[in-house]
Computed example of a mutant assay.
Amino acid sequence: MNSEKPMLAVVYIPGQWDSPSFKHRQASTDSLANALGDKGIMVVVEPDQFFLNIWYRKVKNRRHKLTQKERANRLIFTPLSLFPAKFLRSARLRSLNFFLAKKQLNSFLNKIRSNSTLISWFYRPEMVKWAGQVDEDILIYECYDSHDSNLIALSGQGIKELLGGQENELISKADFIFATSPLLFEKMSRLHNAVYLSRNAVDVDFFSTARKAETLVPDWMSSLRRPVIGYLGSLNRFFDIELMLLLAKEHGDWTFLIVGPENDPSFSSSAGYINFRSLSNVKYIPWLDDEIPNYFKAVDVCILPWNTNYDFVRFSSPNKLLQYAAMGKPVVSTDIPYCREYPALTEIAATPEEFSGKIKKVLAEESPEKLERSEEHT
């Protein structure tokens, strides 16, 4: 392959690019666009949408438009569906719909491909249906989670078997695999002979605004009891609610600021979570992208209270650790293997008592030197 040829990277995603659920992946995708620079183009392929829905949402030009950040080398492509979602329960209609989506995508890529090297980039196993459908030169699987462990925890054994089969198919078709944590690297290396460790990325320009003097903290936060302990991320069963209940009840003079989507209904409706949310020193805010640095400017310590009894957590490479570092915040985490690799950034706690003690320790030791170490790691 001629390294001087321009590159066309096609990234397949399972949801809409600008949805809150995709925010945590945008930084990695942005890094790929940055790496391509002026020598390549990245096309992000969303799931198909019913054409009347697109018209109704007044985004008819979304198929080939530049993204909100107006990167000249990143395009969003949304195949148009002839059928609304409720009709796609039929296998025949799904097959026809995908056939039409392939036609649309290939037609678009042929217009911009020229003599480019075409790279198909996957990070979710369920998108494997696109493998080999655009005559790519290289197929890459970016493995950032233990997907089978995640899905069995959230949805059950049947989903694990389905997703496991899709991941095995994707692994067999991949030319290269990038794993985002050492444990995932070890796991993938047993299944493929071209696996590389590739750490997560963070949008430093965005998150580092929490350090700037001109970044304003919302007025209502001035009345919060200090210190403010902050968590940023999804709220599901991996969030150790027993630990958080103990901390919030033990430290009624602390404020616990929780920012993130409630994306696990069974967890959100659990007695433990409802009890936690009802405490007067717990403040919950849904995921509000542009205002995250404003909220976290007022945070004294950031936490990663994930339940390490889950395999998913053991294999994870939590991007929020880098987001916290970019905001210049000290971090206390449960004993997540990935976090052990950053002792300059993270205090590790194995028990609730240790977690409480480490927060107190960080509050007492916060210094300019720690801020400098955060800057070095991001």
Rank of each mutant, 00 (worst) to 15 (best):
K23W: 08
P84T: 15
L371H: 03
F122A: 08
N34M: 05
S374A: 13
T351C: 05
V134S: 13
F296Q: 10
K58T: 01
L245W: 03
F185V: 13
G260R: 12
K69A: 12
V128S: 14
S149E: 08
K5S: 14
V134E: 09
A210T: 00
L184K: 09
G15F: 04
V362W: 02
S81T: 04
G260H: 05
T351A: 04
P318K: 11
R74I: 01
K103D: 03
N115S: 09
T351Y: 05
S223Q: 07
R92E: 03
L247K: 07
S120R: 04
P337W: 04
T29F: 13
A350I: 14
A33G: 14
Y284M: 12
F267W: 06
L105D: 12
P125C: 07
R92V: 01
R211P: 00
G230A: 05
L52K: 10
V204S: 11
V202T: 09
Y144M: 12
F315Y: 15
V332S: 06
A271L: 10
K58P: 00
R94H: 02
P293V: 09
P330K: 14
S21G: 06
A298C: 08
L232N: 10
S28M: 14
K39D: 15
S270A: 09
E214Q: 07
E169P: 05
I54E: 07
P337L: 08
G132M: 11
N275F: 04
E169F: 09
L100K: 15
A349G: 11
G158E: 12
R226Q: 11
F77T: 00
A344G: 11
L118V: 15
F77C: 02
K361T: 04
Q16T: 01
S266R: 14
S107D: 15
V44H: 00
E250D: 11
E369N: 10
L36G: 03
S269H: 13
I112P: 02
Q49H: 09
L321V: 11
D30G: 01
I76V: 11
F178N: 05
N168Y: 03
D137T: 03
I76N: 08
S114T: 02
S114A: 10
A248R: 06
K249A: 08
S269F: 04
R199W: 02
V43E: 01
A213N: 15
I140V: 15
G132R: 07
L184D: 13
I119V: 15
F296D: 15
S146K: 10
N193D: 11
W306P: 00
R226Y: 03
N110G: 03
D18F: 00
Y295T: 08
S374E: 13
R74T: 00
E341I: 03
P20M: 09
D264N: 15
E372W: 05
K187P: 02
L109K: 06
A174L: 04
F238Y: 11
R373F: 01
L247C: 11
A179I: 00
L109C: 12
K111W: 02
C339P: 02
E161G: 02
